[in-house]
Simulated assay, not measured.
Amino acid sequence: MRTRIAAASGILLLALSGCTAPAAPEPTSSTAAEGDGHGQIEGAHELAEPALHLTTIDAEGTVRHLDLLDEETSVLAEIDPVDEVVTDGRYLFGIRDGSVTVIDSGVWTWSHIDHFHYYEAPAKELGEISGQGTPTVVTGEVGIGVHFDDEAVLLDAPALAEGHLEESFRIPADGPGLVVPMATGAVMTARDADGGATGALRVVAADGTRGDSIPCGSAAGTITTVVGVVIGCADGAVLFASGDPAAVERIAYPDGATPAATAFAAREGRPRVAAVAGSTGVWVLDTRARSWTLQDVGEPIVRAVAIDDADGRVLALTADGAVLVLAGGEVVARTESLVAASLADSEAADAVRFVVDQNRAYLNGPLEQTMWEIDAADGARIARTFDTAFAPLHLAGTGR
């Protein structure tokens, strides 16, 4: 592998952490900076505002940072090519068959409930997690879940802040699926009683001890909201709501509603999340109200992400590459077709993603060699266009 790093400007789970940002759990070791913590680590300096970046990985494995303040681009790393990238707002997890490369982007936001702290430190590659098959990665406040074909791994998130990879457990997996970090351990998917398809969720302690199971047919998709952790099931979703102990609740689909949501997306920490529903629909799950709403857009949809609560806005990407703004189930704004060429290519189409924050949404067009900044609150106005000399195949938002 080639690496070159550049410095970068019982079902009874204990309560989830009170701070909502998953980027950097408060350091607890001797390497933590002096003071009361607030997400700071030794060698980092605090900023007056968030160092928001768009991080991309091209087909060759070049990792680049686009600073959204000064619009300067720098090379963060050179790694082996990846099939997907996952981020928690600070760490990047480059996923490929047989391994995950972990990179500290060097920029992050620490939520302290009523205020935020923003930090910057040198970027660095932290190493690799290896296993059989192409893994899935799920981020959490105190752990990172990595699910290989035959093994389930939980990484210790505070150890990442100290610059190293530490496995809390590595245990045999029970078929394909997910490892979802919780406050004390994780929940992982398990086969049904007949040993067939994924039919349950298994509580696993931080030391790998298996606990109780929860029915969840065809478990797929997970997201953390301000209310708790959601995992999708064939008949709705299981919500692990924050509390002491965490309350486990089932949020069923409305009677007769199909098809199931298999992937969720939303602005970080919000209660409402969205998912594509079949070919033309969008599911909106309100974890605070414990309710689902199905919106039929009337045309093929390939991506959906919930972006606010007050106006109930959702961004959707059409099959022909246009971005729609939905509010109250209605289309209230539409862009021109932006990523038609990328969506027509199978490899590029899988990598087209939204990244959203409080003020803007971003979309990558790998074949168009462009990224767009979209103001959803202003009629889907294209606020900025970032043309690139490379294909931004994989997109993530860092500094959040």
Rank of each mutant, 00 (worst) to 15 (best):
M1H: 07
R4P: 06
S9H: 05
I11S: 11
L14I: 06
L16I: 08
P22S: 02
I41A: 15
T55D: 13
I57A: 11
A59M: 00
T62N: 06
T73N: 10
V82Q: 03
E84K: 03
V86S: 02
T87L: 02
T87C: 00
Y91S: 12
Y91E: 09
R96C: 07
D97V: 06
G106H: 08
W110S: 12
S111P: 03
E120G: 14
V137L: 02
S168H: 10
V187P: 09
M188F: 04
A190I: 04
A193E: 10
A193N: 06
T198V: 15
L201V: 07
V204Q: 07
D212M: 08
P215I: 01
S218A: 10
A220M: 07
G221E: 00
V227N: 01
G232A: 09
D235G: 05
D235M: 04
G236T: 11
I251H: 00
A257Q: 09
P259N: 13
T262G: 15
T262L: 11
A266P: 12
P271C: 08
V276A: 02
V282S: 00
W283N: 13
V284E: 14
V284Y: 02
S291G: 12
V297C: 05
G298R: 03
V305P: 05
G312N: 04
A319N: 06
G329P: 04
L338Y: 13
V352G: 01
V356G: 06
Y362G: 05
G365C: 10
W372Q: 08
E373M: 13
I374C: 00
A377G: 07
A383W: 08
P392M: 12
L393W: 05
H394M: 14
A396H: 01
G397L: 06
